[in-house]
Structure formats: C-alpha cells, structure tokens
Amino acid sequence: MVGAMEIYQLTPKINCKKCGLPTCMAFAVALLAKEKNIEDCTPLLEPKYEAKLKKLREVMAPLASASETGLIIHDEKCYGCGNCVVACPVNVANDPRGSAIGLGPKSDKVILMVEDGVVKCLNPKECRRFGPNRIMCNLCTSTCPSKAIEFV
C-alpha cells in the first residue's frame, strides 16, 4: 500500500504552504490520513506538474474506496472463502447463528459478508477499529489467504 514517502515524491516539494500546512511532507501525511484533498495543493494543478498529479491520483484511488475504518478490499485477490467473515469478533457477537458457526450471515448487523464470490464490508462503524475506544483488531486480515483485505 502507498506510504507518505511515496506520496511526498509526487508533490511539488516546494513547501509553499498554500495548502495551509508548513511542508509538502506534512501535506503528504495529511493526504494519507484523508485530512486533505489532492486539490488543496493548488500548485499541483499547474500544467508543469501534470504527470505528478496523474500519478498521485492513481496511487490515491484505492484509498478513496476505503471505508471509514480504513478497510480496503481488493476484489481481484479475494477467494470468497469467508475466513474473515467467520473470524471477525463483531460478526461472531452480532450473528451467533450465522457467521459465528461458519454459515453465511443471518443478521444484518455483520461487518463482513461474501457477495458474488467476494467479501463486502457493511456497517463499518461496528468495526472495533472505529470510534473513540477503538482497538487495532486484525483478525480479518490475518486470516485472509491472499492479502485481499488491508487497512490503511
């Protein structure tokens, strides 16, 4: 997954402060944290940075699809095996007769379920990585056979 350093390489690196931050590196960090948008960097919209802007939009595209917990699903890698669906502690707690015992979810309060052969994220706010008391649970990523789920 893209890091702040890689994003920084695609900024103008002129520390002009037009985005409201002191350095382009700070802007890169803010961009990754979704606190700033690409368009907040006005120099980047100038024609001379066209190539950088294009590349930056490319590397940032997967992040746009990340849910509020930072969860990204790479559909093309997913086996649809449901390991994450069954291992997710919130799914287990909210869906004792479905995902907790290995079946497809029977509750609409689950976070993860498999649709059309690929895992989907529903109710992201129920995820333990969300909210003020969040914990860095990673059971969905550690049980995945193909790194199809990722947190950013």
Partner: peptide, 18 residues
C-alpha cells in the same frame, strides 16, 4: 482446502465456533 474447498476452514474445520 483454501484453494480446492475454499470454505472448508471457515464453515467447518478451523474458524467457526463449535
């Protein structure tokens, strides 16, 4: 099983509660 019987581990053998 992950490749040949993809839900073996999630439905029966490793991940579900019993």
């Amino acid at each position: 099983p992950t490749s040949s019987h993809p839900r073996h581990m999630s439905r029966f053998s490793y991940f579900p509660r019993g």
